[in-house]
Computed example of a mutant assay.
Amino acid sequence: MIEVWTWPTPNGHKVHVALEELGLPYKVVPVNIGAGEQFRPEFLAITPNHRIPAIVDPDGPGGQRIALFESGAILIYLAEKAGRLIPQDPAARYTCLQWLMFQMGGVGPMFGQYGHFHTYAPERIPYAMDRYAKEVQRLHRVLDKRLSEAAYLAGDDYSIADIATFPWIRFPERRGIDLNDYPNVKRWFDAIAARPAVQRGCEVLSERQRKGAMTDAERENLFGNTQFKAR
C-alpha cells in the first residue's frame, strides 16, 4: 500500500485525486505543516526538500521500495504505475507533460505568491500584490485559450495535467478571479469538480484544515526563518 505523506493543500490534493482516480490503495500519513511536522527526521528521510506531498511505495519498480517527492513527479509515477491518465502516444504524452510542467512552473508558484503577498505577508507591498494579481489573470487567460481548443489540457482525454491544475483553480475568489470571465476554464472546472474521485480526493484530511486566523507559530513554520535552517 502506498504511503502518502501529505496535508490538505492544492499540491496534496493533486496526489489524493490521482490515487482516487486510479484506484490505487493508499494510506494517509498527515504532515501538519503549520505545526512544523515537515521538519521531523522521519519526513526528511523521504524528502530533503521538507515540502509535502511525498510518497513511499513498497512495491515500486522491480518490486523495490521507492520514495518520491515533488507532486509532478509523483503524478507521472502513479499514472505510469497504473497505466492510465497519461497518454501512450509519444506526441500526446509530451503535450500532457507540457501542461503538467506549466502547472508546476507557473500556476502553482504564481498563485502561491499571490496568496502570500495578498493574505500572509506581514506588510502590504503594492508592487508585489499588483505583479502577482496580473500574473494570475494572465495564467487564467492562457488556460482559457488552451481550453477553447480542447476538452482537457492534454487534448480530448482527462489526464494528470488536469489533476495537477484543478486544485489550484478552486476557490478563485481568494485570488480575485471570477471564473465567469474565463468561460472555457469554467466549463473544464465544473466538469472535473463533478467527478466522484475528485470529490473524494479533495476531502482527504479536510477535517484537519486550519480554521480561523493563523497563529504566530504557524506563521513561523510556514513563512519564517525556521524553514531556512540547515538540516
Rank of each mutant, 00 (worst) to 15 (best):
R51C: 03
Q113S: 04
W5D: 00
D181R: 07
C96H: 07
T226H: 08
V198M: 03
E173V: 01
R51D: 02
N49E: 10
D178M: 00
G72W: 05
D216Y: 04
I192T: 06
A133C: 00
L143S: 04
E20Q: 12
F223P: 05
F117H: 05
E135M: 06
G155L: 11
Q88G: 15
I33G: 10
A217N: 10
L22M: 15
P122C: 09
D156P: 12
L22D: 11
P30D: 09
A79W: 09
I52W: 01
A133Q: 13
M104H: 02
R84I: 00
Q137C: 00
P48S: 14
G112Q: 01
H140M: 12
N49S: 14
D216E: 15
M1N: 07
W7Y: 15
P172M: 01
N180Q: 13
T95N: 13
M214R: 08
G155T: 04
G23N: 12
C202F: 08
R131Y: 08
V28C: 07
P53E: 09
S148H: 06
M110V: 11
A35F: 07
A79E: 05
L22I: 12
G62A: 12
I86D: 08
Q38R: 04
I125R: 09
L19I: 08
N11T: 14
A45T: 07
F69A: 15
N184W: 03
E218R: 05
L97E: 03
N221L: 03
R200F: 05
W5F: 15
K14W: 07
R231M: 13
E218S: 05
A217W: 03
T9G: 02
G60E: 10
E123T: 15
G201L: 05
L153Q: 06
G23A: 12
R131E: 01
E123W: 10
H140P: 01
C96V: 08
D216A: 15
A191P: 02
D59A: 13
P53I: 09
A92T: 02
D157P: 00
V29E: 15
D157V: 13
D144P: 01
I52R: 03
E123G: 03
M104C: 14
F171K: 12
T47W: 08
R175C: 02
P25G: 12
R93K: 13
S206L: 10
Q113C: 06
P87S: 12
Y132R: 02
P196S: 10
A193C: 06
L24W: 07
R138Q: 04
M214H: 06
G106I: 02
H116E: 01
W5T: 01
V31H: 04
L44W: 00
V185N: 06
L75T: 09
P25H: 08
I169L: 15
D162H: 09
F111A: 03
M104W: 00
L139E: 00
W168A: 05
